[in-house]
Design a protein around this nucleic acid. Structure first.
Length: 380
RNA sequence: GGGAGGUUUCCCGAGUGGCCAAAGGGGACAGACUGUAAAUCUGUUGUCUAUGACUUCGAUGGUUCGAAUCCAUCACCUCCCA
C-alpha cells in the first residue's frame, strides 16, 4: 500500500478502525503514540523497550532535537530512526507546542518564532521552513505543520489572527516539504505532512480553519490547541464541532491528549491518533493506570502490598514486581522505579488502544465506552 | 581534677525577653501533572470540645507583666589541659 494511504476498515458509531501506511510500516488505528521528546522516552526506556510494551509510533520533538544535539548531527548519524534504533513509524512534532509552553522565552512574528533556548538561552529562529528542514533532517515518517498552539482562554481577535497566520505557515510548510522530499539526499523522502487545526474555543474559527486546511489535501489532519486550559466539556464540544468538517478518508490526530477517558471519548467522536506525556510523566510521579482506575503507588497503603500494579497485566513490571517493591524504589529515588513504572503505563496505554480497536472491529465500542470511560478516570 | 562548648517540635538545625507552636532543610502524609524547560511542583506535618484554648525548646526552682531566650542547681554529651 502506498505511503500516506489511510484505509478505513470498520466503524462503530463514529469510532473508526483504520490502517495508515508510512515508510516504516503500517499503523493500526486508533493509535497512541509514545512520546520520546528528545529521542528517548523519559524514565530510561529505549526503543527496544518500546517494542516490548506494544508501541506502534514513536514521537519526538523538532525543537528539542534542534537545540540538542542539533538536527544536522542526527542527519549525519543517518536520521533519528537509526540514531535511536527505532525501526517503526515515527512522528515529529513541529515545535508549535513550544510556542505555547515556552511562552516566556519566545516572540511570534509573521516569518516565524524567535526562541531563547531553554538550555543555554541562545536565540533560535524557527519558522515553517526551518521546522520542515529540521524534521526532514530527523527523517520522521510524519512531520507536523509548524503552528501556534494558543492557550485557552484567548480573545477572539487574537485567535483569529493566530489561526490565519497558522494557515499561511501551513502553505509554506507544504511547499518546503515538497521541495525537501524531491532532493536525492533527503533522509526520508516519503515524509508526510499533517496539518493542524486551531481556533481556540471558537466554533466558527475552528470550522473555517478546518475547511481551509482540508482543501490542501494533506495526508492527515491534527486538532491542536486542546487540553491547554479548557474544560473536558469544551474540548469534547470542539471535537463534535470540528470533526464533521475533517476529511473522512484522512486520519485525525488529537494532539497531546490525554487521559484514558479523554481518549475513549475522542475515539467515540472519530479521532484516530493520540499522543500524551501523561503515561510517562505520571508514571515517574507514581501515578499508575489500571483497568480499575488510577493508583498512586507512593501511598502508604502499598507499603506491604505483595500484588503487582494490576493483577493479570502482562507488562514487564507486573510480571515480576510487587507494589511494595515499586513503592520502595520510587521513594528511595532509585532510577529503576521510573523505568518500571513508565513501562507499565505505556503498556497500559498501548493495550488500551488495542482493546479499543478490537471493540470497534466487533462493533461493541459503545458498550465498552459506557463501561470504562468513567472507571478509568477514577482514583482508587 | 581544671577549662570551654552544648542539650529546640520525628531527624538535622535557626532562634538569646514579647511579632514563637517556634525559620530552613530532611523525613512522613496527601495532591497536581494532557503535541515534556517536569526524577518537577503544591499542601499538611504538637494536642483539642479548634477564628479560641492547652501542652512543648534536657530537669527542677527562680527573676519578670511576659522566658526556648536571663539566673541557680542538677543530669547527660563534646572538645581542650592534667
Amino acid at each position: 500500500m502506498q505511503v500516506g494511504t489511510f484505509e478505513l476498515l470498520n466503524k462503530s458509531g463514529e469510532a473508526r478502525r483504520g490502517t495508515f501506511q508510512t515508510a516504516h510500516g503500517a499503523v493500526q488505528t486508533p493509535v497512541f503514540m509514545n512520546v520520546g521528546t528528545a529521542g528517548a522516552i523519559k524514565g530510561a526506556v529505549d526503543a527496544f523497550d518500546l517494542q516490548e510494551v506494544g508501541c506502534q509510533v514513536e514521537l519526538s520533538n523538532t525543537y528539542h532535537l534542534h537545540v540538542r544535539p542539533g538536527d544536522q548531527v542526527v542527519r549525519q548519524m543517518g536520521g533519528l530512526h537509526k540514531f535511536m534504533r527505532w525501526e517503526g513509524p515515527m512522528l515529529t512534532d513541529s515545535g508549535g507546542f513550544q510556542v505555547f509552553s515556552l511562552s516566556e522565552l519566545r516572540k511570534i512574528k509573521e516569518e516565524g518564532v524567535y526562541f531563547h533556548s531553554h538550555v543555554d538561552g541562545r536565540k533560535i529562529f524557527m519558522g515553517p521552513e526551518e521546522s520542515m528542514r529540521i524534521q526532514s533532517n530527523l527523517g520522521s515518517d510524519i512531520a507536523m505543520a509548524f503552528d501556534e498552539c494558543v492557550e485557552n482562554p484567548a480573545t477572539y481577535d487574537y485567535v483569529k489572527a493566530s489561526v490565519d497566520r497558522t494557515t499561511r505557515w501551513l502553505h509554506r510548510c507544504k511547499e518546503e516539504l515538497a521541495r525537501l522530499n524531491a532532493k536525492e539526499d533527503t533522509v526520508n523522502r516519503q515524509q508526510l505532512l499533517f496539518g493542524i487545526n486551531q481556533g481556540g474555543t471558537y466554533d466558527d474559527l475552528r470550522i473555517q480553519h478546518m475547511q481551509e486546511i482540508a482543501e490542501m489535501d494533506l495526508p492527515g489532519y491534527a486538532i491542536g490547541g486542546l487540553a491547554v486550559g479548557e474544560s473536558h466539556d469544551v474540548m469534547y464540544h470542539i471535537l463534535d464541532t470540528v470533526l464533521p468538517h475533517a476529511p473522512v478518508h484522512k486520519p485525525r490526530y488529537l494532539m497531546g491528549v490525554g487521559t484514558p477517558s479523554n481518549i475513549i471519548e475522542a475515539v467515540a467522536r472519530g479521532v484516530d491518533f493520540f499522543d500524551c506525556v501523561m503515561p510517562t510523566r505520571n508514571a515517574r510521579h507514581g501515578h499508575l493506570f489500571t483497568w480499575n482506575g488510577i493508583i498512586n503507588i507512593q501511598n502508604a497503603k502499598y507499603q506491604t502490598d505483595d500484588r503487582p500494579i494490576e493483577e493479570g497485566c502482562g507488562c514487564p513490571t507486573c510480571r515480576s514486581f510487587s507494589r511494595a517493591y515499586l513503592r520502595h524504589l520510587l521513594r528511595a529515588g532509585e532510577m529503576l522505579s521510573q523505568r518500571l513504572l513508565v513501562l507499565h503505563n505505556l503498556w497500559f496505554y498501548n493495550h488500551l488502544m488495542e482493546r479499543i480497536r478490537t471493540e470497534i472491529e466487533q462493533d461493541t465500542f459503545e458498550a465498552f465506552r459506557a463501561q470504562y470511560s468513567a472507571v478509568l478516570a477514577k482514583r482508587i
